[in-house]
Computed example of a mutant assay.
Amino acid sequence: MATVSFAARDSRTMLRRNLKKALRYPSLTLTVVIMPLMMLLLFNYAFGTALGTGINQLPTGSGDYIDYLAPGIILMAATSGALTTAISVCVDKTEGIVNRFRTMPISQASFLTGHVVGSVIQTMTSIALVIGVALLMGFRPNATPVEWLAAVGLLALLTSALTWVCAGIGLVAKTVESASNIPMPLTFLPFLGSAIVPTDSMPTGLRWFAEYQPFTPIIETLRGLWLGTGIGSSAVIALAWCLGLALVGHVWARRAFKAGAKR
């Protein structure tokens, strides 16, 4: 019990450190938030009429393209937020602070825990901001409180999973630049799913990829929870992807951290 208590205390200290660092240097967080907001504005106002007209069955709600678009862009906020973890972990590694932590009598797991929990808090705050802007633009979900809670829980689970993966990327990246570039495909992978248009409208090869990549079932589950569209097996597949990514990311990050201590 004492070991667990010390680990929790050290993790809280690391979390406080990372949150204070984010408040003092907000440029990275703001940059990550701006990208989904720009995409939301661009696709809704510049392409919304053309894309909305081409979609035969819009989700229930106001009937506008924003109802179809918003869940995918909100998910993009989760993928963008994970980038901050890779960068911040790599910065600590390249500046030598990680080696300093290793010589101190603290829980070795607290370094990664503090980064991951801090990033999840920042990303969920960014997601709330994107949801608020989407509501101002006309996004009209008809979800019950329980469905809202399920949607937020799914986003939190996805954010945690991607954050652990990006923590591993930050530990193995040689430079901060590579740490920021390696996870970049995660940000745009939702566009190769059903974030912008239904997968049925895509060419055969791209449609196959879009239907079987991890973000499409997550987007469809969010749409179903918020707008009452059919979910089918998407919820189970979405949970499986999130849990699988979380497990792989957690194991990878822990091993990468231990491997760095042996060098």
Rank of each mutant, 00 (worst) to 15 (best):
K174M: 10
A143N: 11
E95L: 13
C166S: 12
H115N: 13
L162K: 08
G118H: 01
G153E: 09
T123D: 01
L155H: 01
A134V: 06
L83M: 14
G153M: 11
M124A: 13
L149C: 07
F111N: 06
T84H: 02
G96M: 12
T84L: 11
G96N: 11
Q122G: 01
F101H: 07
A156N: 08
L129C: 13
A82L: 03
L171R: 08
L112H: 07
V172P: 02
G132C: 09
G114H: 03
L135S: 11
R140H: 14
T125G: 06
T144V: 07
A167S: 09
K93D: 09
V130N: 03
T123L: 00
A156I: 12
S126Y: 00
H115C: 04
V89Q: 04
T163S: 15
R102E: 13
N142C: 09
V116M: 06
E177H: 05
A150W: 13
C166H: 13
L83P: 00
T175L: 13
T175G: 10
I127E: 07
G132E: 10
G96I: 11
V172C: 10
Q122H: 01
G96C: 11
P145W: 12
A86N: 01
A161M: 06
F111H: 04
A150K: 15
I87L: 03
F101A: 11
A150E: 14
G114I: 03
E95T: 15
V91D: 12
T84C: 04
S107Q: 13
P145Q: 15
V176T: 13
I87C: 00
T113S: 14
L157C: 07
G132N: 08
P141G: 12
V152N: 02
S119R: 00
V165H: 07
M104G: 09
T94Y: 05
E177Q: 12
T144W: 09
A82E: 01
A156R: 06
F101L: 15
G81S: 09
T113I: 13
F111R: 05
R140P: 06
L135M: 14
V120D: 00
P105R: 12
N99H: 09
N99D: 14
K93F: 07
G114F: 06
V89A: 13
F101D: 03
M124K: 06
G118V: 03
L129A: 15
M124N: 04
L149D: 05
T125D: 00
T163M: 00
A128Q: 05
Q108Y: 11
V130Y: 08
L157Y: 10
G118R: 01
T159S: 13
L129F: 14
P145Y: 14
L112D: 04
L129I: 15
